[in-house]
Design a protein around this nucleic acid. Sequence first.
DNA 1: ACCTCGACCTGGGCGC
DNA 2: TGCGCCCAGGTCGAGG
Length: 292
Amino acid sequence: MPELPEVETVRRSLLDFVPGRKIVDVVVGDPYVLRGQPVDQFQASLRDQSFQDLERHGKLLFFPFDAQTLIVHLGMTGQLTLRRPDRADTRFIRHHHTGLQRTLQHPPDQHTHISLMLDDGSALHYRDVRKFGRVFTIPQTSRSEIIARFRLGIDPLTADFSPDYLAGGLRNRKAPIKAALLDQSFLAGLGNIYADEALFQARIRPGRACYRVRGRSLEALAQAIVSVLHQGLQAGGTTLRDFVDGSGQSGYNQEGLQAYGRYGQPCLACGDELRRSTVAGRTTSWCARCQK
DNA sequence: ACCTCGACCTGGGCGC
DNA sequence: TGCGCCCAGGTCGAGG
């Protein structure tokens, strides 16, 4: 589900409510998402701690506490949402046309694996159908140490990102350009949606070898990466199936996608039918006429 | 030091 | 209604 714009949307939506709140209880449903951390250790590390800040680098969320840092990666279907006592629960509603699952908030269900009970009666729930995500704590660690520990590259929405950085990373690779965009140790934050969107906007074929992306084309790509991420962020993220922000709200960037998932449909630039192929192991939509 | 591919999970949609 | 197959916003580790 969640690429940089979705994760940042979650972070921003939680920032309004969570800092200052104290964790009074830690409920673990399925310990699988702790990825090996003992349940009692996880619980003890968070109990009685107060939220200070929520940070993000690429797709990784991390929440610093006094002695611990809470790490959250949403994987493919992870949802981090606040259930507030001042709002009524709502049922899941499947949108007839889009299939979107909407709900503002609801009680924990069989997919709710972690619940942090807060001192104002609200609860921060981690729900993850496919369980590709992870939630655990590590001893208090600085931002730069976290980036190093999880081998994350430059976040494209920071000042560290530049056409030069992009050029330096692509020069010696012969893999498809899309593979480089998905490589989190090079660029942290792009996933399958925004990689396809950026390549479409920059008019570059997803299968083109990295070292062959140079000059104006590379400049266009650097610009397109930032542009598609900003667009996603402005739309509150892309909700294909189950993405929601911290309040349970869907995004609407799915309505602005020009390439991702549009194979078989006409290219919005030239009208040709968009192709479908597999690049870097992922389904890819692209226009054979526009993208060279 | 790359790169590709299968594995990890669950559920929805579709064809028969 | 049911079954089997394919598909899905992401990593990881094994093996070439």
